[in-house]
């Protein structure tokens, strides 16, 4: 990549996925702890297993079709994570892959379109609305931040992803006082209040990984 490039290329996307796998491994125990409080305690383990499978898959991949790579990531997550996170993160990547099919570079607008399509897929799959204490609460603000960066103009993918990560972090923290309405945490009702949602946490980490990877890509 050249200095302050207006786009990221296939290598940049690969760097993002690899960074995410490393970040998930670092935060595995934290995700398990968050999930034990209000779920069934396997989120960190399942995501770590899935992202390790993704790394194996990427090692053999060729070409520069960003859409094909994102779809392969999605299919791998779908078939290796299980539980609820498998279909949700799988759908996120599959829909991002569909939105970027055939592209070898992405500008900020294309990144926003891809994440938007991914989050719409997550909402269709999980039927979650904002405020239900789910990954959607971190992802929707990230989409909005990318759109703003696109509208501002002159913002590169790295800076835009950093803004998206900041928005996702705020959204993640906002899940703490929420009462869960989806998934196993919803059975706890008011007892889910006061806990940060593990899915929103792993979603924030996805955006943070993008910011870090794009900045050094």
């Amino acid at each position: 990549m050249t200095e302050e490039a207006a786009t990221i290329d296939h290598a940049g996307v690969l760097a993002w996925i690899r960074r995410y796998a490393a970040v998930i491994e670092e935060h595995r125990v934290e995700l398990v702890r968050l999930d034990t409080a209000i779920g069934d305690g396997d989120h960190g383990t399942n995501m770590d297993r899935g992202m390790k499978k993704v790394l194996e898959k990427l090692d053999g991949s060729e070409g520069d079709d960003i859409g094909a790579t994102l779809k392969a990531v999605g299919m791998t997550l779908v078939s290796s994570v299980g539980g609820a996170a498998g279909p949700l993160y799988g759908t996120l990547f599959l829909q991002m892959g569909t939105a970027t099919a055939g592209s070898s570079t992405l500008d900020v607008g294309a990144l926003a379109d891809a994440l938007d399509a991914g989050v719409k897929g997550v909402q269709a799959r999980g039927k979650a609305e904002p405020g239900d204490k789910t990954m959607v609460d971190a992802l929707l603000p990230a989409v909005a931040a990318l759109r703003e960066a696109q509208a501002d103009g002159g913002v590169g993918p790295a800076a835009a992803a950093e803004r998206a990560a900041a928005a996702a972090e705020e959204g993640m923290k906002a899940t703490i006082p929420m009462e869960a309405r989806k998934g196993r945490a919803s059975y706890l009702g008011p007892r889910s209040v006061g806990h940060q949602d593990p899915g929103a946490t792993s979603s924030y980490l996805l955006l943070r990984s993008a910011g870090e990877a794009f900045a050094t890509a």
Binding site: V78, G82, G83, A84, G86, P87, L88, G90, T91, R125, G126, K182, G183, R184
Partner: peptide
Amino acid sequence: NYTGDVMNFEM
């Protein structure tokens, strides 16, 4: 009816 089962079967 468990969240994970429902979503995986839908996919």
